[in-house]
Amino acid sequence: MAEWLAAHTKTLSLWCGALATFAIYSVLYAENRFYRLFEHIFIGLSAGFGVYVTWSQVLAPKWWQPMVHKGQWQWIFAAVLGSMFYFMYSKKHAWVSRVIFGLFMGLSAGLMFRDFYEIYFPQMGASMKPIVGNSISWWDSVNAIVFYAILISSMAYFFFSFEHDSPVVQKTAAAGRWFLMIGFGAIFGATVMGRMTLFIGRLNFLVNDWWPTARVAWQYRFFQTAVVLAVIAVLVQGFRALKARSKTFPPSA
């Protein structure tokens, strides 16, 4: 058995992957138990694998071995500090966890200062684009003017410190809102592209990785029987789902 498994690891993993893909995408038809089962299998597997990787690649080589085998006893303090987080589950000793949470909040607040000036200051500087100059072409000037028009109108939209009474401010802010909408549209378009790529990835797996092995397996009677049984099971389940649905939502006259 072990030898057979070792020899067919690749095929088995392809079939498991295909089965999981079909199960997860079955939710596009309707919510079902098959989908839920594989969702839980995925969560369990990734959690289990995560524990293994965290121990084998992080805790064991970087914390346990130096502390136990190399005499670097000071690593014990990491365990003490880390375990302080778990006191949040105790009503009586929750204050212990607040100490470590406070430490991390202070650290994050401090880091934000650095984040702000390292990330946004260069962008503010880069926004001051020259419109004319010796090395500036007419096309660069056009680009810079468009950039300033969008920058100023978008900023005008977010001026909340005073009333937008002046028609100039109103019109500029309205233009800013349009530019923002176009920006959001671009982000949404990119999101569609990203989601579509994820679907393409799965479909590519089914078409180019799994399908060739499925065609090879089709020559075995055992496999043909299994496929027929699976199709019948899916049809029966679908028919039962439709029947239950028509009972819940009777067709209107």
Binding site: P122, Q123, G125, A126, T191, G194
Partner: peptide, 25 residues
């Protein structure tokens, strides 16, 4: 990923990024 790429253009414009590969394209 393509979802994140639109937000990265200000970084490219300011020179904080030296290049970008936008998703699978």
């Amino acid at each position: 990923t393509a979802v994140m790429s639109a937000e990265a253009y200000p970084y490219l414009d300011s020179g904080q990024l030296d290049g970008m590969l936008n998703g699978v394209i």
